[in-house]
Amino acid sequence: MDRVRDKIIPVLTILAALVAVWYVAAVFMNAPFQRDLDRRAGETPGTIEFIGKTLSQPKPTMPAPHQVAQNFFENTFLRKVTSNRSLVYHSWVTLSSTLLGFAFGTALGILIAVGIVHVTALDRSLMPWIIASQTIPILAVAPMIIVVLAAIGVTGLIPKALISTYLSFFPVAVGMVKGLRSPEVMHLDLMHTYNASASQTFWKLRVPASVPFLFASMKVAVAASLVGAIVGELPTGAVAGIGAKLLAGAYYSQTIDIWAALVAGSVVAAMLVVLVGLVGKLVERSMGGRPA
């Protein structure tokens, strides 16, 4: 009951407000084109009829929520998952490179963080480069990576996953550096009095202390991975994936398809973030975390 009151109702209220704003926006943005159509056809519809028409154009400037919902529903649940029109199929293609890139990115991020925490030289030399790497717009880098890799014969999943890696290693590296440095001075002193080796201090103190930081940064990283995978699908002229679907939709002015693909992307992102959060909770619980 409390959960309903505290979480679901506020979220639903915002959702309802957004949908309302969306409908109003759709009417206004589609109105000029509809007026144009009506003028050419010599029709003079009443206000209600006019609004109904603006909300049911086949290629609207701004699709109405129910149009997007219908398209999303049809292409998610009513198609065979192997079909080229199925959003499940396209989501799966994007998801697979997201997960691969996320795994690479997390591993790379952790590796970099361990290096930075243990080697002073790396701390000074690596961090500025890592930060610089994230200031380069991914839209500029993605085509280069794809083209260069294609030139040496690497195509398909790997180039897309690498773009995900590029976006996702950063939050993990930053979070883990913070996490591995999070043990209190007193705990470090304690290990010192036991004459613990650096690796004992690492495994018994730094690693467990960093776990909450790891999951917090993995939540950000997994969302970034998905963005990376979608961006990676844009320049390849990819035939499958949410990115490909967006591109095709733009090419043929299938605005409803574009919006449905966007919704699919959001759903995948939300599921990934929730999943990482859930795993994080389970791990922290098993480490004696105090139930919140």
């Binding site: 209190e184 705990h187 018994k204 103190l205 467990p208 776990v211 480490m287 004696g288």
Partner: peptide, 8 residues
Amino acid sequence: AAALLPWR
């Protein structure tokens, strides 16, 4: 202070 590790 006790300085116990909270995850143990």
